[in-house]
Write a protein that binds this DNA or RNA. Structure first.
Lengths: 209, 209
DNA sequence: GCCGAAATTATACACTTGATTAATTACTGC
DNA sequence: GCAGTAATTAATCAAGTGTATAATTTCGGC
């Protein structure tokens, strides 16, 4: 009747492991499948341990969602790189419609969490922050692109452009991640870039880099 | 110790009541909150009764989702009316960004269900069918609009337009339903119509009806 | 009016869930 | 090496879940 062996981990590592295990559970089994037991099993740990690192299961889930959103935005921003605003915007668009942002697992996790946003205030806050960050990023880029090209637009016009671009990218992201259609990566890039160019009144050939 | 009184209902009515109660529960409490007891309580009925009308709770939820999707598509199609293809497309767009299609409750229900699509095959099928129906509707309209205007496009070009339009409408629908921004209904209509017109290469003023 | 079939209720069961607590183990500082 | 502290396990609990079944009530046909 010997206990299972274990080894201690620094707090940050264990927390990260638990969050990763939570995201794995959510991706494969949905939010309802991310039980304390399932998560702890995937993390190679005992259920009781979760409570030492997260007050509630609710907190754990919220932390996982926060981490997920942060990674998503980080990946999108990384696609921007640096250089002229136009090519940064192109990079953002490409990143939004390509893995790892646009892929089945990411969509599954997003879909699972999004359902909890409405009924859980904590999740709602995390969601709102992340969403706004992405929209601000787009709006800033649009503004830079326009000023770079010497096109004078009012603040509301830029805002409107950001709304439309954001919607288009969201929609494309969902469509692509769902994988119903079978477009090659090249197609996806061109469709996204051409559409955004058209919406902004830019020559698509120039926009493709 | 007298039993509560009750009255019998025809099968179709009871089924519809249970589905409506399920959707209410899902809208307010999320999918996890739509327990057998909660649903039966809202339907003014006893938990056990559900089993007479639906084999599983899973079946009940799937039926609710199916009904929800059907109503959504019906509402979108109703916005089309009849007449020239261009005005039917305009009607579809308006319907997509206006209540009851675009509103908080609808989004909540959609979000709650969408999370279950990945892990539940039955839900996946319902989802796929509804999604494809909407995309086909758009594709057909685009084709008609183009032929109506004497613009010759290949099948793949029309398909691409449908993909982009669908994405844009989905994205706008989400944004509007979330209600983060505060645009008036007029703004919403104009933004959606102008964007679609631009994407299709149509003069926006002509498109607004 | 009453009888029988069908709908509905009431109750109970087995299971899973998140949470709690005490016992044990691994590791750090000396 | 050793002691003490903190992390981890193990075991248990109460609450809530979906499901099953028997007891009741409603209501249409006669």
């Amino acid at each position: 009747m010997t206990r299972r062996t274990f080894h201690r981990e620094p707090e940050a590592v264990r927390q990260q492991d638990l969050i990763a295990a939570t995201l794995d559970s959510v991706a494969e089994l949905g939010l309802a499948g991310a039980t304390v037991r399932e998560v702890s099993y995937r993390a190679g740990v005992t259920p009781g341990l979760i409570r030492r690192y997260f007050d509630n299961k609710e907190r754990l889930v919220a932390a996982a969602y926060k981490s997920f959103i942060a990674d998503l935005i980080k990946a999108a921003e990384a696609g921007c790189g640096d250089g002229p605003a136009l090519s940064r915007l192109a990079g953002l668009i490409r990143a939004s419609v390509t893995a790892p942002v646009a892929d089945g697992r990411t969509l599954s996790i997003w879909a699972a969490f999004i359902g909890a946003v409405h009924s859980d205030p904590v999740m709602a806050e995390v969601h709102r922050d992340g969403y706004q960050a992405f929209r601000d990023l787009i709006e800033r880029l649009v503004a830079e692109v326009m000023s770079e090209r010497g096109v004078a637009l009012s603040a509301v016009e830029i805002h409107r452009h950001a709304i439309v671009l954001n919607a288009l990218l969201d929609g494309l992201w969902i469509e692509i991640s769902m994988g119903g259609d079978d477009f090659s990566r090249l197609d996806v890039d061109r469709i996204a870039l051409d559409s955004v160019a058209t919406l902004l009144g830019i020559d698509p050939t120039e926009f493709r880099d």
